[in-house]
Amino acid sequence: MRAVVTRVSSASVAIDGVTTGAIGQGFLVLLGVGPEDTKAQAEKLADKVCGLRVFSDEAGKMNRNLEAVGGSLLVVSQFTLYADIKSRRPGFTKAAPPSVAIPLYEAFMDLCRDRGFHVEHGEFGADMAVSSVNDGPVTIWMDTDTM
């Protein structure tokens, strides 16, 4: 699984002009699923994301995690994280098909909820407009194959 995690002061996702998910302080998580990914990788990624210490403490150091700041997550499916860019027109055959990706996308969100976090989301496969106010900016790339 791959994720781009951005620390935000706010983020939202809309489909056809209707907001379907919105958060204040927290993480915007763009989540991609590969064809060989498993629930164990979703668990590993949820642990890493939910425990990531990138929020400032009293001394201005990135030392607090999502729980410490009362943050939420906005999770948006992002098959393009598995783009093959050998040519100028990307290919997406390295992304998992919906039959694999949807259950793992949902499992990731459930695992974050199980850890006590509020999770908002987009709609898998929809054409979405994602807005965010990046805080920092702080953006972290994660790949369970290299964690």
Rank of each mutant, 00 (worst) to 15 (best):
E43C: 11
F55C: 05
A83Y: 02
V8D: 02
G116S: 08
Q78C: 07
D110F: 10
E43Q: 13
T20D: 12
A107I: 10
L111W: 03
A126T: 06
S87G: 15
G116I: 09
L111Y: 06
D57G: 09
G136W: 04
L66A: 11
A129R: 15
M1H: 05
E67M: 14
D145K: 13
A46W: 03
Q41C: 09
I15Q: 05
T146H: 13
D47Y: 08
R2C: 00
E58Q: 14
E58L: 13
L111H: 02
M62A: 11
A11H: 06
M62Q: 10
D127M: 15
G122I: 00
T139A: 08
V8I: 08
F79N: 00
M142Y: 07
V119R: 00
V69G: 05
V133I: 14
G17V: 02
A46H: 00
V100E: 07
K48G: 06
A95L: 02
L66E: 06
R53W: 07
S87H: 15
T139E: 08
P137F: 06
V8F: 01
V75R: 04
G136P: 04
L31N: 01
P103V: 04
V33P: 02
A59E: 14
D135W: 09
T93N: 14
E106V: 10
V13T: 03
A22P: 09
Q78S: 07
G26W: 01
Q41F: 09
G26E: 03
Y82C: 01
E106L: 12
E106N: 11
L81I: 03
V119T: 03
S12N: 10
S87D: 15
N65S: 11
G60E: 02
E106D: 14
I102D: 08
P97A: 15
V5C: 01
Y105G: 01
G125H: 05
R89M: 10
A46D: 04
E67A: 15
L74V: 04
H121P: 10
Q41D: 13
N65H: 10
I85C: 15
L111D: 03
A83P: 05
A11F: 07
L31A: 00
G21Y: 00
E36C: 10
V75H: 01
M128W: 01
N63A: 11
T93E: 15
D110I: 10
A107W: 11
